[in-house]
């Protein structure tokens, strides 16, 4: 079937199998490999992305269910400050500043979940952060520095959320995400 999904500000029109999971569409067809597959059974949270602004687990969602939706992945979190450069999102800065990752496998999902939390609750308590992360599993850190990283982001969050911006966001020199976004519909096979 054909789907049209706006991923990190760019509208994609793609042909997918009916049974394609959103995470496989993002990783295998769009080559946005920042979204990870951990458990593949909606437990670990490594695959968390935003669909229409809310955090969901993309390993338990058909790409077909996201047809017509706006998807933000970790690659879309950095904030473009010129046509060729971008700044890390405060959460990305926070994880860097507070040593919020070790192996880094869970980090994209942690950041996407935390971004959803901070949107609803800009100044969460430690307990609220820990509760919000109940669907994200980290095998390395013991979570302490992840909590600190999110607290850091909460106190350094002066920048607008990417999906509230007029301008689409560009993250890094990734094959797809560094394309200048023109608003055109891109066919991806």
């Amino acid at each position: 079937m054909q789907i049209q999904v706006t991923v990190n500000g760019k509208t994609r029109k793609s042909e997918v199998e009916d049974r394609t999971l959103l995470v496989h569409y993002l990783r295998d067809q769009l080559h946005l490999t920042g979204t990870h597959v951990g458990c593949d059974t909606s437990s670990c949270g490594a695959c968390t992305v935003h669909v229409d602004g809310v955090a969901v687990k993309s390993c338990t969602l058909l790409a077909a269910q996201a047809d017509g939706c706006a998807v933000t992945t970790i690659e879309g979190m950095a904030i473009q400050d010129s046509p060729t450069t971008s700044q890390l999102h405060p959460l990305q800065e926070g994880f860097k500043e507070c040593h919020g990752l070790q192996c880094g496998f869970c980090t994209p999902g942690m950041i996407m979940t935390a971004a959803d939390l901070l949107k609803h609750n800009p100044n969460p308590s430690e307990a609220e952060i820990r509760e919000a992360l109940e669907g994200n599993i980290c095998r390395c850190t013991g979570y302490h520095n992840i909590v600190k990283a999110i607290q850091w982001a909460a106190t350094h969050s002066t920048k607008p959320e990417p999906n509230q911006q007029e301008e689409p966001v560009v993250a890094d020199e990734h094959l797809f995400t560094n394309d200048v976004t023109t608003g055109e519909v891109v066919e991806t096979h």
């Binding site: 949270g45 955090a55 969901v56 687990k57 109940e134 669907g135």
Partner: peptide, 9 residues
Amino acid sequence: GASAQLRNM
């Protein structure tokens, strides 16, 4: 029940 991401979906 569940987690934030699952309750969203």
